[in-house]
Design a protein around this nucleic acid. Structure first.
Lengths: 155, 155
DNA sequence: CGCAGTATAATTGTGCACAATCTTTTATTC
DNA sequence: GAATAAAAGATTGTGCACAATTATACTGCG
């Protein structure tokens, strides 16, 4: 009675049954594929998404930026310093609140937006799935992400 | 005639229109959520997927392992050394081919499989989506990944 | 046999990711 | 208005990721 059946169910530990693994592997692979088109702009993928946020919304604090791109100060602080060094952004502490760090595009950074148009174009056929699958994939991922965000928010 | 219309279409550079971003953010978030259950086993997420492959398939070379988990020697070499230090795996060069590095589970590593059953259980309700969405998401990601693999293979 | 070429990992260098901690500034409360 | 608390970033430490290079072992061919 005490003895358990030896035939345990290890199915849940098989790689093929994981949802997370293809998610993780796909994300890595696509980020890797961004490298070539982004090399032209001298940006990494993470730097690119930061630039995209600034192109779309203009200047904001590091904290606001971090909330949008899901990165904390430990990642953003050095990354933003590198972008500043490249001349794409400025980092300034407003007199109104010297704790904050306001990130703004420089002229060069703003101008880079033009060149950046080549990136989504080059990447457009990167994921080799029919258009309807791509849309469905995006829908599900956005949904999952927004639920995680709201879970994050009320803790 | 030479002058182009100033109203450029920057839609493709908005974060909300990217497929890659939610993929990237979701993957990070889920890997982050693995931390707590994996802390019990003293494993990182990447170490965990390596262990899963070994639990399922037994020993293999570093190269074979890398092909399965999509990681190269630059990542695996130090990771495997850490797993060896923890006593979960052994790293040996077979006499038949001393270039290769055969990775095998130790008794401790094999036994860890039992404890590891708690991980998928703890994670099961991590992505807050209805079951059918999860299945669809997995299907699409597996599809995308396998196409990338085959593209990789014939180059 | 000798050596050219290939296979297999290890190493190096740069950057991301994040938990934990520390620092400085602002806000609150008595 | 001084003590305390909270906010906003910076720093530190560990580990992953990957391109590029290097080191060593094997393989095949003359």
């Amino acid at each position: 009675m005490k003895e358990q059946t030896n035939k345990k169910n290890y199915e849940s530990l098989k790689l093929g049954n994981q949802l997370c693994f293809p998610l993780y592997a796909c994300a890595k692979e696509i980020v890797r594929q961004y490298r070539t088109p982004l090399a032209v702009l001298n940006l990494t993928y993470t730097q690119y998404i930061v630039m995209m946020v600034l192109w779309e919304h203009g200047s904001m604090t590091e904290g606001e930026l971090g909330r949008i791109v899901h990165l904390d100060s430990g990642t953003l602080a050095p990354l933003l310093k590198r972008l500043e060094k490249q001349g794409y952004i400025s980092r300034t502490r407003p007199a109104s609140n010297e704790r904050q760090l306001v990130i703004a595009l420089t002229k060069t950074g703003e101008a880079l937006k033009e060149t950046a148009l080549s990136v989504p174009e080059a990447m457009s056929e990167c994921i080799d799935l029919p258009r309807e699958d791509l849309l469905e994939l995006k829908r599900l991922l956005d949904k999952a992400l927004s639920r995680m965000d709201s879970k994050q928010a009320n803790k």
